[in-house]
Computed example of a mutant assay.
Amino acid sequence: MRDLGAGFGYLIKGQRWVGRHGRWFGFGLLPGLISLVLYAAALVGLGYGADDLVDWATPFADDWSSPWLGLLRTTLTVLVFGLGLFLAVITFTAVTLLIGQPFYESLSEQVDRTEGGEVPESGLPLWRELWISARDSVRILVRVGLYSVLLFALGFVPVLGQTVVPVLGFCVTGYFLTEELTAVALQRRGMALKNRLALLRGRRLLTLGFGVPLGLAFLIPFVAVFLMPGAVAGATLLARDLVGPENEDDDEDPAPAAYTLDKD
């Protein structure tokens, strides 16, 4: 359980870091503001269109008597919007990181620089970094999509769907948020997606302690934008410790090898 607190501690440390480096905080806000406008427009559209979508998808219920017709479609409308919100929380980080790749790379490098020690660089051109980032984001989103479908289906199970499923949803959200954020620092260290996932699986509670509170905070409008710079900084601090010298000795598939695969 100590890892849960440690993970949350990295989130706080990241926010403190950008608080002490105000210029980098402002620098890191720009990609989030762009993403916020895009996602706000998408969610407003979903809010207006969710009921029409549900009506179109349930023609078999047109002849149902009251209150069953209203109950079914209202429940499905809420679930559709909830699924959209869940996907927005999950994908917001990936899209923002993709938009802000140069911004967050610079921020992450600055965190490494101020914390001392080696400052890894990918050595790849920007277009290659963007390609790897986009490719890995798609792979993550496929995984998230599968979990989303499963959790959406389980949401119809009485009691379970209203208690356990939301908790599992936030755990999934937190895990993949941590992966997406630590990817900025770990890619610079030459670590491919499969190695990053294996690294985080080895410290699940640490990963959830960082990502779950962040996922909950991201549900509050505008909060995600202001937390993103600190989240990237905190994820860099987390990555530094995960791949520290004491962990590198035990790594069966070291980062340089994974990096070579990505460069091919």
Rank of each mutant, 00 (worst) to 15 (best):
R240C: 06
E129T: 11
D241S: 07
D264S: 06
Y175L: 06
V212N: 05
A258E: 07
E246Y: 11
V44G: 05
L107N: 06
T91F: 08
D55G: 12
N247E: 13
S106G: 07
T58D: 03
L30S: 12
A134R: 15
L186V: 04
P166V: 04
R20C: 04
Y48V: 13
M1I: 00
L199G: 03
Y104G: 03
S108F: 05
Y175N: 08
L53S: 14
L214W: 02
S148N: 03
L69Q: 13
Q101W: 13
T173Q: 13
G45F: 15
T260N: 11
W127Q: 06
L4F: 15
K13M: 09
D52G: 15
E179Q: 14
V54M: 01
P59T: 13
N247Y: 14
E246L: 14
S137A: 09
R2Q: 14
P31L: 10
L126H: 12
P245N: 09
L33Y: 15
P125R: 06
R16A: 14
L83F: 11
I140P: 08
A6K: 11
P213W: 05
A257I: 13
D3T: 15
V89W: 03
T58M: 03
G32A: 14
D253A: 11
A42S: 09
V80W: 14
Q162M: 06
T207K: 07
I12Y: 02
V78Y: 10
L205A: 12
G155Y: 04
Y147E: 05
V212T: 13
L43C: 09
G7Q: 00
W64G: 04
L238N: 03
L46I: 14
R240S: 07
T93V: 09
L11P: 09
R189S: 10
R23L: 13
Q15C: 13
G5N: 06
I140R: 14
V164A: 10
V37T: 10
F27R: 13
G14I: 07
L11Y: 03
G32S: 04
Y104S: 06
C171D: 00
E118A: 15
G244L: 00
L79Y: 00
L238S: 06
D55Y: 05
L98C: 07
L36G: 12
E105I: 05
L150N: 01
T74E: 10
L237E: 02
L43W: 06
L242D: 05
W64D: 05
W131G: 11
L43A: 15
A42T: 08
G19W: 14
I90L: 02
F25M: 15
G123W: 00
D51H: 09
C171H: 06
F170Y: 15
G211N: 05
L107I: 15
L261H: 10
L126T: 07
E252H: 04
I34C: 01
L150H: 08
R143N: 02
K13T: 01
P213C: 03
L151N: 09
D262N: 12
